[in-house]
Nucleic acid binder design. Structure first.
Length: 326
RNA sequence: GGAGAGGUGCCAGAGCCAGGUCGAAUGGACCGCACUGCUAAUGCGGGGACCGCCUUCAAGCGGUCCGUGGGUUCAAAUCCCACCCUCUCCGCCA
């Protein structure tokens, strides 16, 4: 979420940065946020002034009572009560405007890093490397989709997964289940030299899911357990990002490096029929996430290191891949 | 699920039952000064955070903050309600 103070001190910088996304409605929302902020400060200044008067009067009431002047005290109380009514109105207005401001801010995307490419979609993402190990380099008889080989080998049984849980759920069997587990173990083993392994909760509060930006924008994409007011995580990024939320970390201890192997849950709302064959876009899958909490200065080097670690895993397995800048 | 105790500053902890002089005693830690072969001890002094206004080097003014959110009241750390969390005991446990 963009810091309101930055919005106040340098709104043009924010506008310029966000305009690189090529989405005019984002700029509209930015202007609304700026207006809400100005309005809310205006209201709070008035509210504070009245509150100061009420506080003074309350002190005067105590003083007057101590002197034994009951009548005078009651008169002051009357005045204070009237001011209190006015204050309540302003306080309500303030709450409403604050809510509006927060809602708009939560829907405004982050400012892109100066080095990030401009663009409004994935077609604008420059290719950095690859593709490597292209499937086309393999003979035609080996280019069989995984949902066919998986079934033939008896390691994938999505039909029964669907019977148990419905469409877009997958199930691995026998050595397929072992392979999935081994891949995650492999990923953990390759990063245990630099990342602390965490096994976080995979059900999180609304506050936690908001911290990583999933709420309120992507509420439809997450599974929600109404009875307990908890959300299933779509990625371990969610709990890992909030691990040290609200705490002050000594800069000497940065960067903090975490990795986590968790199931991930995604409703994939609106994606029915698109890339849904086999194990693509499943509602539930296992993933190893690596994440670092760092200073802005440390971040670029960390990005290079972590991308390199991800690439080494895939390249080491001989899988096809490419690297794009997003 | 039931019963009870608790949540106050960096930490410990008083204040709550009898609302006002409580941003909050006291102690520890921390910072400064003094004293002191060193370490330590002792004495004196000093610090909260956030928001807004005004300034923008300083200072000043106002507001908010005692788990969270409501309520009562002229006035809430203090009274009332709901919720969250911690601890103890009982029950349940695919």
């Amino acid at each position: 979420m963009i810091d309101v103070r930055l919005l106040r001190t340098d709104p043009d910088a924010v506008r310029v940065a966000l305009s690189r996304r090529g989405q005019p409605d984002v700029i509209d929302q930015l202007d609304r946020a700026i207006a809400f902020d100005a309005l809310s400060r205006d209201i709070v200044a008035k509210r504070d002034a009245i509150r100061a008067e009420v506080n003074d009067l309350s002190k005067a009431v105590a003083e007057t009572r101590r002197k034994g002047d009951t009548h005078g005290a009651e008169e002051l109380q009357l005045r204070s009560r009237a001011l209190g009514d006015h204050e309540r109105v302003l306080a309500n207005e303030f709450e409403i405007v604050q809510g509006d401001l927060r809602d708009v801010l939560l829907r405004i995307p982050n400012m892109p890093h100066p080095n990030a490419p401009d663009g409004d979609g994935d077609t604008d993402n420059p290719l950095v490397k690859g593709p490597i190990n292209l499937p086309a380099e393999f003979p035609a008889h080996r280019r069989v989709p995984h949902w066919e080989t998986g079934v033939a080998l008896g390691i994938l049984d999505n039909e029964r997964a669907t019977k148990i849980s419905g469409a877009m759920f997958t199930m691995l069997r026998g050595s397929g289940a072992a392979l999935s587990r081994a891949l995650c173990q492999f990923a953990l083993d390759r990063n245990v030299d630099a990342f602390e392994e965490i096994r976080p909760p995979t059900l999180v509060t609304s506050a936690t899911l908001t911290a990583t930006g999933q709420l309120p924008k992507f509420a439809d994409d997450a599974y929600y357990i109404e009875r307990d007011d908890l959300w299933c995580i779509p990625t371990a990024e969610v709990p890992l990002t909030s691990l040290y939320a609200g705490e002050v970390v000594d800069s000497e201890d940065l960067p903090l490096r975490f990795m986590a192997y968790t199931p991930c849950y995604r409703r994939e709302a609106g994606s029915a029929g698109r890339d849904t064959r086999g194990m693509l876009r499943a509602h539930e899958f296992d993933k190893v996430e690596i994440l670092a909490v760092s200073t802005p200065e440390q971040a670029p080097d960390l990005l290079v290191e972590m991308t390199g670690r991800a690439e080494a895993l895939i390249a080491g397995l001989g899988l096809p891949y490419r690297i794009i800048e997003i």
